[in-house]
């Protein structure tokens, strides 16, 4: 897919912003135009987090997404808030460990991945975001696995580089699910 406009949303602490950043970095390594925009309003103090990521062959106009090709949600309120922002024919990926409700939209593809539960069983619940990105990559081919791994190296502090093999396993799980 040439152009991906992704809204990622969940609670603060679920790695929403950093997942978006890794994805944008990987997109840049694919020689695409990318932008990453976090919500920075007062809501960031209220425990929710979301970001807009655009990966495109074209020059990016507005980095703000009124609508998205893909929505990745890691909690229920985010699904409520952004479900209608997904374009017809778009994708919703939800962390089915945490989001019980099934989206009402019939004109989008919906995928549930038990990301938090799986990440917990893999020994690190913080990798749930990576599992969900794995699903996104499998569905859209927006970035390659190789570039994703480089992006992890570029965006993570060096003291966390030892975790990269486990994160790649998490990504693989999401891709295969």
């Amino acid at each position: 897919m040439a152009d991906q406009q992704i809204i990622m949303a969940g609670f603060g602490g679920q790695g929403i912003l950093s997942a978006g950043r890794i994805l944008a970095y990987a997109g840049m390594l694919e020689n695409k135009n990318v932008s990453w925009l976090p919500s920075y309003g007062p809501e960031m103090r209220g425990g929710t987090a979301n970001c807009n990521v655009i990966i495109s062959d074209e020059v990016i106009g507005s980095p703000i997404l009124n609508t998205a090709t893909t929505l990745i949600v890691m909690n229920g309120p985010s699904l409520d808030k952004f479900e209608n922002a997904v374009e017809s024919g778009g994708i919703i990926i939800k962390d089915s460990s945490l989001v019980q409700r099934t989206p009402e939209r019939k004109d989008v593809e919906v995928y549930g991945v038990p990301a938090t539960e799986t990440a917990f069983n893999m020994g690190n619940p913080a990798f749930a975001n990576i599992i969900l990105l794995g699903k996104l990559i499998a569905l859209t081919n927006i970035v390659s696995k190789e570039n994703f791994e480089v992006a992890l190296k570029k965006t993570l502090p060096s003291k966390k580089h030892s975790l990269i093999p486990v994160e790649m396993k998490a990504l693989e799980f999401g891709m295969q699910y």
Partner: peptide, 10 residues
Amino acid sequence: DGILGQMMES
């Protein structure tokens, strides 16, 4: 503005 300040781009 806040968009330019907060956004990441290459």
